[in-house]
């Protein structure tokens, strides 16, 4: 009884906050998708936004396109982060945390500023173009990368490498070194040890890296706006547009719902295989 009251006191404030500022807004967003116009009353419900959305294949194409880009971003970030985590964990001894901290320092710097840095690098007067001009690889000064999907990809991979490295590093660090010794004692070659011991044990880290890069990238709109230009826009830009220039809130709400459902299905399936958030009770 006593215990129940304590638990109630602890859990009520965060629950109420989550209810009012997280669950309720999501429900309201779902209702908004049925409104006939941005302003005005909710009733009568209308399927305008649905008709608009489902009769326009361009929206779907962009959603698929953005999913592919998010997938590519996640895979590339992991491919680049994996070897460095491996090196740090298995080759650098006690200095590894210091070296990792140094490597992922940029992750703590404002996202917008890191994107700005790439805008500067990829621009027509930017570092990359100057370098290519100086080496004679290109002749004119047109930016070869800025305002393209490639620019968005490069910038996003840059932004996400540190976040991919962290969980992979953590997973590798948890591997008991005695397992490697045991494998070697039993006659496994280094490559067999890697594929049969290290890789499987690192998988949860790789999976959570994938998860935490893929999802935010899917809703990305700032990076495409800054470095992607017209050809580099993503699904997130569509949503943002409905609340800016296009001013079509019901459609924007529906587009957000679609993204939410997509992310929800993905998270659910993903979580079945690899539980991301597990907290043990220690009492």
């Amino acid at each position: 009884m006593e215990n129940k009251r304590r638990l109630f006191t602890l859990i009520t404030p965060p629950s109420v906050f989550l209810l009012f500022f997280f669950m309720v807004p999501l429900v309201i967003m779902a209702l908004y998708a049925f409104k006939s116009s941005s302003f005005g009353p909710l009733f009568p419900l209308s399927l305008n936004a649905f008709n608009n959305f489902f009769s326009n294949p361009a929206y779907f194409v962009l959603l698929i396109n953005s999913s592919q880009l998010a997938l590519l971003t996640a895979v590339l970030s992991i491919v680049l982060a994996f070897p460095v985590s491996y090196y740090l964990v298995f080759y650098t001894g006690s200095r590894r945390v210091m070296l990792l901290t140094l490597l992922i320092l940029p992750a703590w710097i404002s996202y917008l500023l890191r994107v700005l840095a790439w805008k500067v690098i990829l621009g027509s007067e930017g570092l990359l173009n100057q370098l290519l001009l100086a080496t004679g690889l290109i002749q004119d000064g047109a930016p070869i990368l800025l305002y393209s999907q490639a620019a968005v990809l490069i910038t996003l991979v840059y932004v996400w490498i540190p976040f991919a490295a962290l969980p992979i590093f953590a997973a590798m660090e948890r591997i008991d070194p005695r397992l490697h010794e045991a494998a070697a004692d039993l006659g496994a070659s280094p490559s067999v040890t890697f594929w049969r011991v290290t890789a499987p044990l690192t998988m949860p880290g790789v999976a959570s890296a994938f998860f935490f890069v893929f999802i935010p990238t899917l809703g990305e709109w700032v990076t495409p706006t800054l470095v992607g230009g017209v050809s580099g826009i993503m699904y997130g830009n569509l949503i943002q547009d409905q609340f800016g220039r296009a001013l079509n809130w019901p459609l924007g709400a529906l587009m957000s719902m679609v993204l939410l459902v997509l992310v929800g299905v993905f998270s659910y399936v993903f979580n079945r295989f690899i539980p991301i958030t597990e907290v043990p009770v220690s009492s």
Partner: peptide, 27 residues
């Protein structure tokens, strides 16, 4: 259930949360 709901904001694209909150405040 509580743990699921409480960690849900981790996996929602910010743009979706932003839209939801904006619509609620507007409503």
């Amino acid at each position: 259930f509580f743990l699921n709901i409480a960690t849900l904001p981790l996996v929602i694209p910010y743009v979706v949360l932003a839209v939801a909150l904006l619509l609620m405040f507007q409503a």
